[in-house]
Write a protein that binds this DNA or RNA. Structure first.
Lengths: 346, 346
DNA sequence: GGGCTCAATGTTAACGCTAACACAAGCTAG
DNA sequence: CTAGCTTGTGTTAGCGTTAACATTGAGCCC
């Protein structure tokens, strides 16, 4: 349509994209030599290589990956099956994976799950598999996901992120339990008699592990564990459970299983006129970028999402290269103390 | 290694995955008929079709997409080039795109940009193109991205999300300007003499449009526009600029260009002892899920990210199907009034 | 009942690339 | 000086699928 104004190297008027044969003809070599320049350049005489590279540039040649895949059986693509990539955690992990993958010349294809119905994971993996991915990373930290993971094709290289630990698949995860222990110990060390807990949804592995860590820290200090209150990760659920806790004058320390719930909790406490951290201390989990700006700035357990993403990718590479076994590697989270926790007033 | 315990339909011991020819042999037909069962089932006699489908199931056959791509030239894959998929906006759009794509039997491949250096977009598009994507959606709402978008191959179906409006590419966007106008008018209608603004980074199209909308609303009311304060989308920058604003007793209404900055601003005002909304009204932009739980709950402009993602996908489909021209379609954001804005105290 | 159409299926040849082997020329070693 | 190795390149075949054309047989019309 428009006149070619850019100094594009692609000859205008050309109708079909250049293929290897075109490059070969232009450089006066065979297609195979062109292929070698791409894959094993050291096996081509520098002079020839230069001619071929020049021809590629002149024709704006791009290798056709579909043909490559067909010929080699390797795609250089890895699939990520994830539940709700809108959440900060999954989004960050996806990002970490993508960055790591790029460094290793891999491309990432995604399959988001809308729901976690039975079979959803298998369907996601299937969609990716038919795209001939070299391997798959599953981000689905649900207990019910375990079932789906069990019945996956055993020949497909696969790594799960943050999954249950009794699975027959390799897992990369944050040590949620250790994080919960740290947060709870911190609150106890401030003189609180016990620590209440707003938990994540029942179905999540993360929730489970955090409840376990919280329980453990209370037990080792010889304290009773009050019933945890169930939330669903949303600020709203934190708010609702927070209203319950705010009404109970015995409550002086609360550990929320993630930051949005902590935010909701803070609002509930504020509305009930209970000062944080004067009357009640609050700790969260995730350490989202906004946590330092909550009212008050939130003490939270920082999850190294990006790092887990990189770890998962690395483990997947090992699988693809033929590693056996079902390792489980974890990354330690770190407690970041801010102003929402303080010594118990007497 | 382990004994086959699952009732997997794939015959154990089989070494190579089944291909079309295998299915054909088993069903007693030619490969072409199998292909037809997959692509144009109505052209195959029901009886034959059933036999073929049965054979597929028995052999756990999965079509090889690489071969399909090579033969047809269509991949059923679309690429998304995005800047920082960790941010709520891009993550939500990506999700919207993926969901829409799934409905149309498309798969999504991503290329995240680490930086927005010159050429980054082209490089991202190139990476995707060599994966033979059918089309590309670029999420890069930066002014500097414009340059990159200009020099893209004209034959590749492409849609930009939220890009500048003087570009030679189709654009799907939120009408940021209209959103800013609404927020500013709302604040003025509450009796504030003027509205201050914490802007996004200079380089973003979104920032620009929001500044323009804010300016317009002030101008139409005959008010002076104070100098906008530059932020970088982060809560921290909102906090820092907030300290400046909090120190100025003339300031009674602030419109922050996104919610995290509004959150930082709220903290700064709180620390300075200025009541919100008693002394100062605050409005944000994005309406993140946590906004209702800020202190106080934040009035904000809701961005329909998912909708924009769907719109972009739909526009891309039209491109792929041969549509011409460079349409620009926008979605109107909506103002959600909460407790952070109130009538000016006298 | 011969020629026609139409529906269902088969055959052949790509698609663009690379693995595997083949070959030529130059060099080394005995 | 010849067998044997090395280096650089070419040839052939095949990866799994579909487009395009070919074939077969049934049903129909005049």
């Amino acid at each position: 349509m428009s006149a070619p104004s850019t100094p594009s190297p692609a000859p205008a008027g050309r109708t079909r994209a250049a293929v290897m044969e075109d490059v070969a003809a232009r450089a006066g070599v065979s297609a195979m030599t062109v292929s070698r320049v791409l894959n094993t350049p050291e096996k081509v005489r520098p002079q020839t290589r230069a001619r071929v590279l020049a021809a590629m540039r002149e024709l704006d040649y791009r290798p056709n990956s579909a043909a490559r895949v067909l010929a080699t059986g390797r795609s250089g693509v890895l699939g990520v099956v994830s539940f709700d990539t809108t959440l900060y955690g999954p989004a960050s992990m996806l990002y970490g994976i993508e960055q790591a993958a790029r460094g290793a010349e891999y491309t990432v294809t995604i399959a988001s799950l809308r729901t976690l119905t039975r079979g959803a994971i298998e369907e996601g993996v299937d969609r990716l598999r038919s795209q001939s991915v070299d391997g798959v990373i599953v981000i689905a930290p649900h207990l019910s996901a375990a079932e789906g993971l069990r019945r996956l094709p055993p020949d497909l290289p696969l790594v799960a992120v943050g999954a249950a630990d009794d699975l027959p698949v390799p897992v990369a995860a944050v040590d949620h339990r250790a994080g919960a222990v740290r947060a709870t110990r911190h609150l106890l060390s401030l003189g609180h008699r016990t620590v209440h807990h707003i938990a994540g949804p029942m179905d999540w592995v993360d929730s489970d592990a955090r409840v376990a860590g919280w329980r453990h820290a209370l037990a080792e200090a010889g304290r009773e564990a009050p019933d945890p209150l169930p939330g669903d990760w949303s600020a709203r659920s934190g708010y609702e459970q927070g209203r319950v806790l705010a009404a109970d004058p015995e409550v002086t320390a609360v550990f929320a299983a993630n930051d949005p719930m902590a935010l909701g909790l803070l609002r509930a406490l504020r509305e009930a006129g209970r000062d944080v951290p004067g009357e009640v201390s609050v700790a969260g989990f995730d350490d989202v970028p906004e946590a330092p700006f909550f009212a008050p700035p939130l003490t939270s357990v920082r999850q190294p999402f990006g790092e887990v993403g990189r770890l998962a990718f690395q483990m997947l590479l090992e699988r693809i290269d033929g590693a056996e076994g079902v390792p489980r590697r974890t990354v330690e989270p770190e407690l970041v103390v801010r102003e929402s926790t303080a010594a118990r007033a007497d």
